[in-house]
């Protein structure tokens, strides 16, 4: 992975806690340091997800919950769900995150992306009541472990995509939000162009190729 040498190290993340952090013991403080080191190596939230997947780590899950559950609820509210339904669906989504944690592949998706797909499917069930067949899945489990360098670059690309979206002109960004949160007809979606997806697509393509090779 020569090109990795050219990439700047991950920036210090500014993440305002949504839930006030309680006092932590020394052991927990140690754990937090471990997590932030792992974050630097793997990208945000990946270490918590893997800890849930591999050890059923409830503390790691609580961190994921504090960050993602309110965002899932906001996503559902914006999609037209009422308060009680949004709360219930967000809880469903987080329970699914726990149960399906082993299917999360950090060389193909950021944690936010993976949780988005679960939240979207829950929203379709709850609000549109339409069936949404899923593609045949590729096998994924504890083995084969994805390459750390692949994980890191995919996580970095996800972050860059977020930054690029934030820099889009307001009306374009609003249209994209409407496509993902609201109801935008197919014809209206066709008007959305110029999303900077080339690099992240290449990364995912590479991860898929490696999975295919591991299958044979």
């Amino acid at each position: 992975m020569l090109q990795l040498l050219d990439e700047s190290p991950i920036k210090e993340r500014q993440r305002p806690p949504l839930v006030p952090q309680g006092p932590r013991g020394a052991a927990q403080a140690e754990k937090v340091r471990d997590v932030s080191q792992a974050e630097e190596a793997q990208g945000e939230w990946v270490s918590q997800m893997l800890s849930v997947a591999q050890h059923g780590d409830e503390a790691a899950f609580a961190e994921l919950f504090a960050h993602f559950a309110p965002r899932i609820k906001a996503f559902l509210l914006k999609s037209g769900a009422g308060g009680p339904m949004a709360e219930e669906c967000a809880q469903d989504v987080m329970a699914t995150v726990w149960h399906k944690a082993r299917l999360f592949d950090p060389s193909r998706a950021s944690v936010a992306t993976w949780i988005f797909t679960i939240a979207r499917n829950r929203r379709i069930d709850a609000l549109r009541k339409a069936r949404r067949p899923e593609p045949e899945d590729l096998p994924w489990g504890p083995e084969p472990e994805p390459d750390q360098a692949d994980v890191l670059s995919l996580q970095q690309e996800s972050e860059k995509l977020g930054e690029a979206l934030a820099l889009l002109p307001e009306n374009q960004r609003a249209l994209i939000e409407q496509a993902y949160f609201g109801d935008l007809s197919h014809g209206e979606i066709a008007r959305i162009t110029g999303l900077p997806l080339g690099t992240i697509k290449s990364r995912i393509r590479l991860a898929l190729e490696k999975l295919r090779q591991a299958m044979t």
Partner: peptide, 10 residues
Amino acid sequence: AVGGALLETA
């Protein structure tokens, strides 16, 4: 991944 980025700022 676009959906993921939007969820992150929802």
